[in-house]
Amino acid sequence: MNHASLNHQRSFVLQPMQHWLESIEIRNPWMARSLCKLIPARCPFERKITLFNHTVLYIPPLCKLNPFYDQLVELRFKSLTYLADQCGEDITLYC
């Protein structure tokens, strides 16, 4: 299998979950608060592990490894917007 067909297969498998995440509507404060606490505000760590000035191991930002990262960020944004606009809450706690 070539690289293009592997990407197509992966895309085909992941798309239903991506669409489902995108379609979630935030309708209650408990859910919105939970999502804001669960989904990090920033992309988790990137690390270089060096030994004697040579990089031994490189760990990329974890968001680049997560195929649902964009949808999760959007879901967190929807939650923050709901809390601020619909509930009138101060969302600085989640930022």
Rank of each mutant, 00 (worst) to 15 (best):
N7Q: 08
L35T: 05
R76E: 07
Y82I: 04
C95I: 00
E25H: 01
L51F: 09
L93C: 05
P16C: 02
C95V: 02
N7F: 06
G88D: 07
A41D: 13
D90E: 11
F45C: 13
Y82E: 05
T55D: 01
T92R: 12
F12E: 11
F77E: 14
N7C: 04
R33D: 13
L38S: 06
F77N: 14
H19P: 03
Y94F: 15
Y69S: 12
L65G: 12
R10C: 05
R47D: 10
I26N: 03
S11Y: 02
H3V: 08
N53R: 10
L80G: 15
K64P: 05
S34E: 14
P61R: 14
F77R: 14
L14C: 03
T50Q: 10
R10K: 09
W30A: 12
E74S: 14
I24A: 02
T50G: 04
H3E: 14
P40I: 02
S5F: 04
E46L: 13
L57M: 10
I26D: 00
R47G: 01
I59L: 12
Q86K: 15
I24G: 01
D70F: 10
L51R: 07
P60G: 04
H54F: 03
T81S: 14
A84P: 02
I49Q: 12
P61D: 04
E89V: 07
E89C: 08
P29W: 01
W20I: 01
R33Q: 14
A32P: 05
K78F: 07
C95K: 08
Q18M: 07
T50D: 05
F12H: 13
H8C: 01
T81C: 13
R76Q: 09
E74F: 08
Y82T: 02
C43L: 03
H3C: 06
L80C: 13
Y58P: 03
M31L: 15
V56R: 00
I91E: 01
P44W: 08
Q71D: 09
K48F: 13
A32W: 04
N28I: 00
P61M: 04
I49A: 07
R42T: 12
E74K: 15
